[in-house]
Design a protein around this nucleic acid. Structure first.
Lengths: 91, 91
DNA sequence: GATAAAGTATACATATATGTGAACAGTGTC
DNA sequence: GACACTGTTCACATATATGTATACTTTATC
């Protein structure tokens, strides 16, 4: 089980709503976890990312923890702030 | 040159703004084209997709032609309406 | 246990995506 | 040309993501 899986398990145990939606297949809930994982790999704090995106750290926290939904541009910007890019596919 | 490329070229020639943003690398502009391509492959009209998503056909047209930005949930729903799924990656 | 750094939670304001309906345009068929 | 079908554009209303500031929590270090 990798770090992302561990994180998901932790979120599930702490939040019934998260667990319920996650099991339903709403993997959008994974997005926040993905971004957080990518941020930590880049060795950045939420505040550092916030500064790059010219916003506050609370906004970053919200994205990582409560991103039931998110704008595509926000995803793209977040990825860019980490020096990465967002790949999309309809398959 | 595949159909999507042809479509992009057509949009570029008709809309300077589209061309400009596209060349800048704002590939979000590709999203609408991607969705349209997927819809046509599935053999569905905009109205059919609109019905599945319980919305109007004008909303579908707008997404395909003027989706400078779009919500992740909208992308996911659209893909589902076509019997497909959305793949995301931060790389 | 005091302090600082990092992250979370909340509330309100603002920006913007989407819903909705109507009018109009393009395309093909008769 | 009339008709039906498909897609586009517009305006307005509504829903919701994000900006912003503040307070609180957690964790680590001393």
């Amino acid at each position: 089980m990798d770090d992302l899986d561990k994180y998901i398990e932790k979120r599930k145990s702490k939040s019934p709503k998260f667990a319920q939606n996650y099991e339903k297949g709403y993997e959008q809930f994974k997005i926040g976890a993905l971004l957080k994982e990518a941020r930590l790999e880049a060795g950045l704090t939420q505040e550092q990312v916030a500064n790059k995106l010219k916003t506050g750290k609370s906004a970053i926290s919200r994205i990582e923890n409560h991103a039931e939904d998110i704008r595509l541009s926000t995803l793209v910007n977040y990825a860019q702030a980490l020096g990465k890019s967002l790949k999309l596919e309809v398959a």
